[in-house]
Design a binder for these strands. Structure first.
Lengths: 227, 227
DNA sequence: TTCATATTGTGTGAATTTTACGCAAAGATA
DNA sequence: TATCTTTGCGTAAAATTCACACAATATGAA
């Protein structure tokens, strides 16, 4: 039993985990809650922050425990603190945005009910997670202009059409194929690859790799990807 | 006495309050701590979040109580959760960025020791507030591209040189006078004012007002101020 | 093998925006 | 009235964005 002179809220972390594939576009990973409150509802993986770990560590721990994924990018994007957002007691949550390489859920102990949902087919969510998701998406859209985080969602070797549909999926817009390729190549972050991509219906597109060293160089002088 | 099965951290809010005037440029409002820990150190106004209010409400309350200012803009920009950031007990803080019309500190009860510091003359700060300040400044620089929040820092009627030095002060850069004016006017957010500005050494610059209605119109179609 | 089809790679000119900078007008001071 | 400083306006060159055409490559059917 832990005692305080003043009431303290409980603190949780929640992870909005995005993944991507060409078939379903941008998707988010949800877990079906096995316990009350909101039993049977879908929610973000997350849990109580331990008293001896910071929120970043806690979010990462919960993410791995509940989904088995190793995030390629993770970033705190806000605290959600509405007084009655949790029916049990006063709980505030610190929300994280994570990108992972999409795949079948490897499954830790709790992961039996984890599933990917394409962004346009997300069910009603527990707590205030609907609002958290909206904020996460708008944050992802902002971030993609400043960091090449999109590349974390693709395999290490990818084609220009793949890269374009990823960007279109995240930003919800359509780009001219030729202008998109020109801009991307002009950034100097891509290098053409020898290998050929597999499983393409028509002409085989050239494959590229993301040059992370080049990106690190560019960051020092400030940096922005325009679209 | 409040008892929990699991340990709960304390939760505070802290406000990084920015003000501006031509003489000192961008400044931040700090309070000298009267109690331990960090007694005598300068820190952001803030305090414990109440169990029956959300963080936004708490931040606003503390801001008003401790400084007497009414923020023209306020925005949460992050939670800081390092395990040992407070020597007393586990305390996490939710940090807010606020803009106020700079003036003498009106002073609530605690405000006796509040003072404005120009950004290039900020003393060492209590807790992890140095880091919080750095994050706040970079957030302010980002935000100024998407919202005309700079106008909240100026008097309702202002001149183009005033507006320019505000932007230069926030972004830490220098713009060509003529190009800056052209871009600003081109946005359509300014309307020329009849009145003349006072106290100018040479030629009297024309004065402008910020057209908030026009801004609200523009927001719907997405919006970005480029520099 | 050949042809029609689908998809990718590259280029180019027009329109727009950014950038650098010249010059005259307006007020203050001598 | 002359001089100095600051503001307002304009313009040409450079860079970027945007719309679009055409050739090249692979597949599958004839």
């Amino acid at each position: 039993m832990f005692k305080y002179d003043y009431p303290h809220p409980a603190v949780t972390t929640d992870c909005v985990i995005f993944g991507y594939d060409t078939r379903e576009g941008l998707s988010v990973l949800l877990i079906e809650r096995g316990i009350e409150p909101f039993r049977g509802c879908w929610a973000f993986p997350g849990g109580f922050m331990r008293i001896d770990e910071d929120a970043d560590t806690g979010a990462l721990r919960e993410l791995k425990e509940e989904t088995g994924f190793e995030p390629l990018y993770i970033e705190q994007f806000g605290a959600f603190t509405d007084v009655d957002r949790d029916p049990r007691e006063r709980v505030i949550t610190i929300a994280y945005l994570a990108l992972v390489k999409k795949g079948p859920v490897a499954g830790g102990d709790d992961a039996s009910k984890a599933r990917w949902f394409p962004l346009n087919a997300v069910p009603a969510l527990a707590f205030d997670h609907d609002r958290i998701l909206r904020v996460a998406i708008s944050r992802l859209r902002e971030q993609i202009h400043f960091r090449p985080i999109g590349f974390d969602l693709l395999p290490p070797v990818f084609t220009m059409p793949q890269l374009q549909s990823l960007y279109e999926s995240i930003l919800g817009t359509h780009f001219d194929r030729r202008n998109f390729a020109a801009k991307m190549l002009h950034l100097g972050l891509l290098e053409a690859d020898k290998e050929r991509s597999e499983n393409t219906p028509r002409r085989v597109p050239t494959t590229y790799r993301f040059n992370k060293d080049r990106y690190e160089e560019m960051k020092s002088g400030g940096f922005r990807i325009e679209f």
